[in-house]
Amino acid sequence: MNLEKRNKIDNRILAGDGLYYKFKNRSYSCSAGFWARSQPNMNYIATTGHCYVPGSGPFYLLPWNSTRVYLIGEMPIHYLEPIDFGLINIDIKKIQPIPSVRNTDSERYKELFIEDVILASNNGAHLCLSGLRSHVKCGYVAALNGFTSNGLYFRDNIFVVNLRNIAGDSGGPIFYYKNFTHVSLNGIVQGGLFDFNDNINGITGVITISSILNLFEDLEVVTTS
């Protein structure tokens, strides 16, 4: 893995791009959820809190289908309860965050502009994820009011989508297509929910965007509008 620390602003990070870090000589990965900002002009990449490992090194940008990574920064803010959420410091002089979703596999619409933030409000709504391993895939809302517990942490601010995510997709955006080029952000991937019996489609738990913004009242999602 090639580690880059160049100062030129030629490295862009989009929602769905990979996040790479090392701990005790082992490599780990998650996905970027969205560009977040708080005052006074602090910039972050949002992802899941479980991507943080105490004692691990800084996070790097790992673009799709790439072996070259670019330094982003540390994760000073990370929670496992009441929501699974973390914020990575970003220096926009070195890495340029973009308020768009990565969709590189598409021939025509390689970036999907995040126009706004909305709540998932209907069972059966068609939503999609973008992540390092799955790239873009879609499914339908199976439940609006879900919770998870592993005996240590309880989280009740999730909804459920019947699509299968792959390890490394955690933290990636869940979004709704407004048209071919613009999307609304609904939340970020927490991970697979293995208590559900769906061996065909898979089941993904989603951290609601409202629970994130309720916990961090001074945080805003950077959009194109």
Rank of each mutant, 00 (worst) to 15 (best):
N157S: 14
A15S: 15
I188N: 07
G146K: 04
M42Q: 14
T223S: 06
F175T: 03
A15N: 09
N89Q: 12
G139E: 02
L127Q: 05
G49T: 01
T223Y: 00
E220D: 09
P99Y: 13
H135S: 08
R164W: 01
I90T: 05
N43H: 15
G49F: 06
N7C: 05
N145F: 10
V222L: 06
D91L: 02
L144P: 01
D195P: 00
F34W: 15
T204K: 06
S211M: 10
R102P: 03
N162W: 07
P82T: 05
N165C: 15
N145L: 07
F194S: 14
T208H: 02
Y21V: 02
D116Q: 13
N89H: 08
A167S: 09
R102E: 11
P99V: 08
S184I: 11
V161Y: 03
S29W: 08
L71I: 09
G168P: 03
N41M: 05
G57H: 13
L215A: 06
L215Q: 15
L19V: 07
G57T: 10
I114N: 04
L87S: 07
P58D: 10
K5L: 12
N41W: 03
H135I: 05
N122I: 02
G18E: 05
G18A: 01
V221W: 02
G57F: 11
N201T: 01
S27N: 11
L132N: 11
R133K: 15
W64V: 02
D17T: 10
S130D: 07
